[in-house]
Design a protein around this nucleic acid. Structure first.
Lengths: 150, 150
DNA sequence: GCAACAGGTCCTATTATAGGACCAGATCGT
DNA sequence: ACGATCTGGTCCTATAATAGGACCTGTTGC
């Protein structure tokens, strides 16, 4: 009765969820995008139990989503920094954000906003075709895995 | 010691994860995008326990991500169809897929692919600024919720 | 030198998940 | 039209994950 795993799945969505699709991991990554770097910062901001946080941070480091770096304030402590792989989760976080904004708030209810450096709200995520034309769900389909290329 | 909830969070990412951020929901939605509609189809394809699936489907219907519609084959059964709100999860699924493809497969390892109607692989998700310039993580920041507008 | 802070580990109670038994209604085969 | 099987569940039990707190070690501030 072990929890079902998808780390060997042929579908990248399943593998991604296997890696980071739990309650806390993406919230930790979100906080990392917001600039949080220290154990205590995550713990206070999320209200997560320390044991859980410890487990999650270890897993994220193992996955190479976060890495431990010397603290930026010169103290003997360490900080958790996003790696390239972690930064590549940006579209996922933005996608969740935009879906949440669109569907999970009552009219007039306040939520945080993603803005560019000039303070302007960002646009919606776009999936371009190879030729640059924007695609929506009905323009696409999933092609099953084909034999490996050499 | 109830499981932590974020349904009232001010951050849309947290609310989104509260709604659909569990192990199964997004996989069910992924399958729905792939055209699966019946209880048994989901159950067989995911290998999920029926009880779990039942709970998840009910929650997704409650959230208005899926809806029950009469079976398309004319039988007395019902099917689960994506709603507008469910279809809006497309960028989230694609984001997870692209991250998984990029980081969770060994070189040469096979995975399924997202292609357009012509069979061409799709491009990477793009976050445009309001003026259309592509933004990456370092071009953006989160602005805390401001007082509600009237 | 000592109190408080940072960053954990470990234990316990509760909650969620996996898997299977079971069941009612719909459909199929003959 | 009748039994066998399929569909779509519910319910129960064992196991695994989570929440919360006690506790511990090394660091920092005073």
């Amino acid at each position: 009765m072990k929890r079902t795993g998808f780390s060997k799945a042929e579908c990248p969505v399943a593998r991604a969820l296997d890696a980071i699709g739990d309650w806390w991991s993406l919230l930790i990554v979100r906080d990392a995008f917001d600039g949080l770097r220290r154990f205590g910062d995550f713990q206070r901001n999320l209200g997560i139990a320390k044991g859980m946080l410890s487990t999650r941070l270890q897993k994220l480091v193992e996955l190479d989503v976060l890495e431990l770096v010397p603290a930026s304030d010169g103290s003997a402590y360490q900080e958790y920094a996003l790696t390239r792989r972690g930064r590549d989760l940006f579209p996922v976080i933005v996608g969740l954000r935009q879906w949440g904004e669109a569907h999970l708030y009552a009219r007039g209810e306040a939520h945080s906003d993603l803005v560019d450096q000039a303070g302007q709200p960002v646009g919606q995520l776009v999936l371009p075709s190879r030729t640059g034309r924007p695609l929506n769900w009905s323009d696409t389909k999933v092609r099953k895995a084909v034999a490996r290329k050499r």
